[in-house]
Computed example of a mutant assay.
Amino acid sequence: MRSLLVLLLVAAASAKVFERCEWARKLKASGMDGYYGVSLADWVCLTRWESNYNTMAKNYNTDGSTDFGIFQINSYWWCNDYIINSHNACGINCSVLLSDDVTAAINCAKRVVRDPQGISTDCAPRAGLISRGRDLSSYLDGCGV
């Protein structure tokens, strides 16, 4: 039991809250700038308001689903949390979205945006964040990206 507690504490310690520019550079290096028409500033804005750049962010929804990680990826559509019946379109366990290694989260966000309904399937309409022509350049100010 004691070793389980230590492992849980280590897992929690591996969470990361990115700084804005650090996150912008990570997204750019991962090919997110302009991916399926979503600008780098849109991604930075989206993740700022959805998770405050926190890889361990979780939001429990009234429909029984949960939003996971830095992108707040929903368990009903995109990952399997083994609590609700999931479509699991990203083919992953939701727990991998709660890691400082954001590879799975970025890959799943790319899958979300490729969906016929695009990112609107997930959180954008609720948060009202995808720019739709608004100037979001301030999210990249001073980042050198």
Results as ranks from 00 to 15, higher is better:
4 L>N: 14
125 P>G: 04
71 F>R: 02
45 C>T: 14
4 L>V: 14
69 G>Y: 13
139 Y>W: 14
86 S>M: 00
20 R>C: 05
65 S>N: 02
137 S>H: 01
122 D>C: 03
135 D>S: 05
52 N>P: 05
9 L>Y: 04
100 D>P: 14
138 S>R: 14
35 Y>G: 08
138 S>Y: 15
95 S>T: 13
60 Y>I: 08
21 C>M: 12
122 D>W: 13
14 S>W: 04
77 W>S: 08
30 S>K: 13
69 G>A: 13
78 W>H: 03
117 Q>D: 02
110 K>W: 08
56 M>W: 15
15 A>L: 10
89 A>H: 09
75 S>W: 01
102 V>F: 06
54 N>E: 05
134 R>W: 04
90 C>D: 12
58 K>N: 12
22 E>N: 06
13 A>L: 12
86 S>L: 00
13 A>D: 10
82 Y>E: 10
66 T>D: 01
41 A>W: 07
52 N>G: 14
106 I>R: 01
111 R>S: 12
67 D>I: 13
111 R>A: 15
91 G>Q: 04
33 D>V: 04
101 D>E: 05
50 E>I: 07
71 F>I: 06
122 D>Y: 12
51 S>E: 02
68 F>K: 05
102 V>N: 03
121 T>A: 14
123 C>M: 07
65 S>R: 00
129 L>G: 03
28 K>Q: 13
92 I>L: 11
77 W>T: 02
66 T>L: 01
100 D>W: 14
32 M>E: 12
